[in-house]
């Protein structure tokens, strides 16, 4: 279909050159997005993040320090009787040492590593299907929208925030950005960091059947963000 490539591009180029400029268009890029004035102080951002995520029926746990964060994770697991978790590798989890703490408490931490080949991959996915809780860190969080930004990478599997019905993300208060625009402007190379960047804004939901809100239709229906600091 190499011909199609050239034909399509030629047809587009013809339209661009022959036609008049489309309405409202400039040949110059319109530049940076308009600024959004939002709280950018720590308390203001935490308050906004909490309010927004809770509107969406996510849960925010604010804790003072690492020890409290570890305790809170264990409480969440206990409450759900979860003895296995699908987690990012230890080096990427916050607080540092969380993986070891979990294992010491008798929790099995499953790795996100997926085989490349089809049958092995399916077998691995099936083996993980009954894991109830996924645990991740985050690359950042957005105060304005109550989102956590999760970036894939070595030891940071996509599936930890996707397969299990419960997702626990542990972040530091210092990771909050006021807005999506602020996050992108502070992380211009974020697409280079991993093949998948996802802003998660609340639990999985659908309104397809008569507009009735249902949580957890495919992704996690129970989302907890633990904010340290």
């Amino acid at each position: 279909m190499t011909d199609s490539r050239d034909n399509v591009l030629a047809a587009v180029a013809r339209g661009v050159r022959v036609g008049s400029l489309p309405p409202g268009a400039s040949l110059e890029h319109p530049g940076a997005p308009p600024p959004l004035i939002r709280p950018s102080d720590r308390e203001g951002m935490i308050a906004s993040f909490t309010r927004e995520l809770e509107k969406l029926m996510g849960t925010v746990h604010r804790v003072a320090d690492d020890a409290q964060a570890q305790t809170r994770v264990l409480e969440l697991l206990d409450a759900r009787g979860a003895r296995r978790v699908l987690a990012w590798d230890d080096e990427w989890l916050r607080p540092a040492g969380l993986g070891q703490v979990l294992r010491t408490a008798g929790v099995v931490t499953e790795s996100c590593w997926l085989p490349q080949e089809g049958a092995d991959r399916t077998a691995r996915l099936k083996a993980l299907d009954d894991v109830v809780v996924g645990i991740t860190g985050a690359h950042g969080a957005l105060a304005d929208t109550g989102s956590v930004v999760v970036v894939s990478g070595p030891g940071r599997g996509r599936i930890a925030s996707l397969l299990p019905p419960v997702h626990v993300a542990v972040i530091g208060a210092d990771q909050l950005s006021p807005t999506l625009a602020a996050f992108l402007s502070a992380n211009p190379g974020v697409a280079d960091v991993g093949s998948n960047v996802v802003a998660i804004t609340g639990p999985s939901r659908t309104g397809d059947i008569e507009g009735t809100l249902v949580l957890g239709v495919h992704g996690p229906g129970d989302l907890h963000v633990i904010v340290i600091g």
């Binding site: 927004e52 969406l56 957005l142 304005d144 929208t145 109550g146 989102s147 990478g153 999506l180 697409a191 280079d192 991993g194 093949s195 998948n196 960047v197 996802v198 802003a199 998660i200 804004t201 609340g202 639990p203 999985s204 939901r205 992704g219």
Partner: peptide, 15 residues
């Protein structure tokens, strides 16, 4: 919604 639940940006295959 302020943002759709999953704003999912994919850049190439698994690295």
């Amino acid at each position: 919604q302020k943002l759709t639940v999953y704003s999912n940006v994919m850049s190439g295959p698994r690295r």
